[in-house]
Design a protein around this nucleic acid. Structure first.
Length: 288
DNA sequence: GCGCAGGGGGTCG
DNA sequence: CGACCCCCTGCG
């Protein structure tokens, strides 16, 4: 496949570091020159920020410009979103200044589901390694600039894996969950195409929760970080719980805070942009 | 340097 | 509410 290139002006709302290290994705890796290389769909791509420009280079299964617009959410006006959220309060404004180049990716739904099932009670380096091994074992190989990369497997491809196979790849107790979920999707017990047509976050969540290994937190991550793109959902993990407690609740023991209380604050303050607020706060708190 | 607890983007029973 | 597999980290 031929290498394509696409260049856009940096308008202040695109920073590879912010995008790839705000915790939404697991398949982007930093190179020595500061660029990032990742695999998504049937594409391998390098992304680099240079002299006020963002440079995309990669091997793609169709036009690179269309692919980037979709995946990197380029048609959404993040300047407008940031202006709106900055008015909420000074905490959020500070976090937005810190992670000003964050964008929420449109990741492939099945990959997102499996990746976040694997994320349960796990740490990011290990999650990345497991997803990489799954791709190498069951995905397709793509060559780019002398190196081999592997696409995340389709439902059909991953359905070839037994529980034992998955255990061998290091999934631990999540092996059964990934196995069961893959089967349920393969057999259309949960119809991913139908999910894309639903326009109500609660309805989508209800469907996702049928999948083994998908609880509240994972369901919210899937809805926010995949092509489902529900910007109103507010995933609550330990970091978000911590920052929300520090800023607004100020309880002595944050583990005792009811999730509903946090969700209500998020809804009241951030409204239909809660998911984006979550990403700015998460990145701010984790990095700092 | 090695060895061993501690804990990690939660979910399930 | 406790266990869950694995591995990486931090302290002794």
């Amino acid at each position: 496949m031929k290498v394509q290139e696409y260049i856009i002006q940096d308008n202040g709302s695109f920073d590879p570091k912010h995008i790839f290290e705000c915790g939404q994705c697991f398949r982007w890796n930093k190179k020595e020159d500061g660029s990032y290389i990742g695999v998504f769909g049937n594409n391998v791509m390098s992304v680099k920020k240079e002299n006020g420009k963002i440079i995309f280079r990669g091997v793609c299964d169709s036009n690179i410009q269309n692919i980037c617009k979709k995946y990197f959410d380029l048609d959404r006006d993040y300047e407008e979103i940031k202006n709106k959220l900055s008015l909420v309060d000074n905490f959020l404004k500070e976090s937005i200044d810190y992670g000003s180049g964050i964008r929420i990716l449109n990741q492939e739904l099945f990959e997102c589901i499996i990746s976040f099932i694997i994320s349960a009670n796990n740490n990011i380096p290990r999650i990345k390694k497991i997803v990489e091994r799954i791709s190498k074992e069951y995905g397709n190989k793509i060559c780019f600039e002398g190196n081999d990369y592997y696409t995340f497997p389709t439902v059909e491809q991953l359905s070839k894996a037994t529980v034992q196979d998955l255990r061998q790849l290091g999934l631990g107790f999540r092996d059964v969950r990934v196995y069961n979920t893959t089967r349920m999707i393969l057999e259309n017990k949960v119809d991913l195409h139908k999910l894309e047509t639903l326009n109500n976050s609660d309805k989508i969540r209800e469907e996702l929760l049928k999948l083994d290994g998908v609880g509240d937190k994972v369901a919210d991550c899937i809805m926010l970080f995949s092509t489902l793109k529900r910007l109103d959902v507010f995933p609550i993990d330990v970091w978000v719980r911590r920052v929300m407690n520090e800023l607004y609740i100020k309880a002595e023991d944050e583990t005792k805070i009811n999730k509903k209380e946090i969700k209500k604050i998020a809804e009241d303050k951030y409204k239909d942009l809660a998911g984006l607020a979550q990403q700015y706060l998460f990145y701010w708190k984790r990095e700092a």
